[in-house]
Amino acid sequence: MTRRDFSERDIHMALDGELPVDERAAYDAWLEANPEMKARSVRYVADRAALRAAFAGVLDEPVPARLKKIVFDEAPVETAASSSRWWRAAAAAAMLAIGGVGGYVAGIDNLGLEDPAEDQLAEQAIAAHLIYAAEQRHAVEVPASDKDHLQTWLSNRVGLKLVAPDLAAQGFQLVGGRLLPAGESKAAMLLYEDAKGERISLFVTAESAEKTKGTYGSGEDGPEAIYWLDKGYGCAVVGSLPRAQLTAVAKSAYSQLIAGLAS
């Protein structure tokens, strides 16, 4: 029998039939010894049964004639218009994703599908966060105690009317900010910290021609960026918070930045 430490990952593997047979007995023993993990396993088993039951009926439905017809038709043609038919449902599905998570598109992260412009913004923002959020003494160029100067300076350099959002309601205090290169232009980075020392950053550039938003992950366990681009500016909120919390921060930052830009 193989001896090794098991983890939550093994619960998924066992459930999906991916756990090697010779590890099964040790896994079962581990599960018995860990009531919390066992409870989790039981819930996942039940969820899978419910999922299967919810869609089982589809297999028994008669195949619609229009689908059969495609296969039987002699000369198949790929119609450009066809793919747009279910587009609205996909849009609805995406909106549902938001309903569930309570924020932006809980998106197609880690797929490398995003537009280059937003890729760049998110990647620059994540890179800046990784470097400066880890700095204790030199995280910012201008501290929050000099907030008025910070806002004026960054606004002038970046070319936007920048107001540092107040994120106290989300538990974050402004640490300060710095000026960064962003492609051929400049970006402002604002760093925030909560009582536990957890840091998030806002990354704002004046360069954007398109309008979009989404999320972007740097990797499986790295920080995540929630970004939006609008005419004339792009912004990303970066942090390693749970998605719902990061979304709440992003929403608040978004509305305050918008209000600031318009003021």
């Binding site: 587009w87 849009a91 995406a94 909106m95 994703a97 938001i98 998106g107 979009t212």
Partner: peptide
């Protein structure tokens, strides 16, 4: 399609 939806900012 999901990518297009995402890009259009429908959501």
């Amino acid at each position: 399609q999901m990518r297009k939806v995402n890009r259009r900012g429908e959501a």
